[in-house]
């Protein structure tokens, strides 16, 4: 007897016998468990370190489970007003980039899908190439430009640079979503007397909601976890972001492992929560436009 599994499109994959199926399943699970352990082990070790007293954190042989459970490192981090400031800075910058980046990208994606203009392909190609440029290679010119225009060590420079770096990715991401909106809907609206811009806001934008959600999640995860730009373009405490702030537990006399790990866990918590709750959007974003419906 053969079993069948179904694809997303409803077509069935022919499968080999029950024995072979079980074998495949076992191998798949073993591989997935191994991958999960590989990914989670360092995090678990970090969590364990964040819950140990400083002495136990560097003891030999190491202990997986804290012998003396303590939340002191979390208290140290959360009682530090600067750390709270870094968190709020990151929330503010992330939301600003999300708003500006997604707005710009949605308009741009609609323009490149639905409109013809000179240099469209070249522009898209150039945008694509900017995604390939490693951040480290442009950090010095960015720094000099920021100083020249008086934006160094401001929130504005972070928002501008993050937007500039993420908008090309978002445009490419949203292109697929815009393309999946039937052009006939827009044509019908135009025939009914709707203006071109109104078509975008009234017809296209509401249908782009899943794509906009995916783009927002992508922006959040990218900006929240970013280190290099936040490190190079901000000098003082006032505008510092959380990922850079956590690095300050690497001190001149040694590494403060407990607070460093506690700070790291506090900083990743919003990303984990957001990702877990909006996972659907993110997956859609990854596959959006891959299959023409």
């Amino acid at each position: 007897m053969s079993t069948k599994s179904t694809t997303a499109g409803g077509k069935a994959f022919p499968k080999s016998g029950k024995k072979g199926n079980r074998m495949t399943e076992t191998v798949t699970y073993v591989a997935l468990i191994a991958a999960a352990v590989f990914a989670l082990l360092p995090l678990m070790w970090g969590l364990s370190t964040s819950l140990k007293p400083a002495v136990e954190a560097s003891t030999w042989p190491p202990t997986w489970m804290p012998r003396h459970l303590t939340f002191d490192h979390y208290a140290t981090v959360l009682n530090n007003p600067k750390y709270i400031r870094y968190l709020l800075n990151t929330v503010g910058v992330t939301l600003a980039v999300m708003l500006i980046g997604v707005t710009l990208s949605a308009h741009a994606a609609w323009a490149v899908v639905r409109h013809r203009f000179i240099g469209k392909k070249t522009m898209l190609f150039l945008m694509w190439t900017t995604i390939m440029i490693p951040g480290i290679s442009i950090i010095v010119p960015l720094y000099l430009m920021a100083v020249d225009v008086g934006l160094y060590d401001t929130y504005a420079v972070l928002v501008i640079v993050y937007c500039a770096s993420i908008v090309p990715t978002l445009v490419w991401l949203l292109r697929g979503f815009v393309a999946s909106v039937p052009a006939e809907l827009e044509e019908a609206a135009l025939i009914d007397g709707c203006g071109r811009i109104a078509v975008f806001y009234r017809i296209v934008l509401p249908l782009l909601r899943p794509g906009l959600g995916a783009a927002a999640v992508l922006v959040f995860v990218t900006v929240w976890n970013e280190f290099l730009i936040g490190y190079a373009l901000v000098l003082g405490d006032e505008h510092r972001l959380i990922q850079v702030g956590v690095y300050y537990f690497v001190t001149e006399t040694g590494i403060e492992w407990g607070p460093l790990m506690a700070g790291m866990f506090i900083s990743v918590l919003p990303v984990v929560v957001l990702f877990a709750s909006l996972q659907k959007f993110f997956i859609q974003g990854l596959t959006g436009g891959a299959v023409k419906g």
């Binding site: 010095v140 720094y143 000098l235 003082g236 405490d237 300050y248 690497v250 001149e252």
Partner: peptide, 15 residues
């Protein structure tokens, strides 16, 4: 007082 990571002060000053 502008607090800068200790390894970064020197390159930051050069820049």
């Amino acid at each position: 007082a502008s607090v800068i990571q200790w390894q970064e002060i020197s390159p930051q000053l050069l820049r």
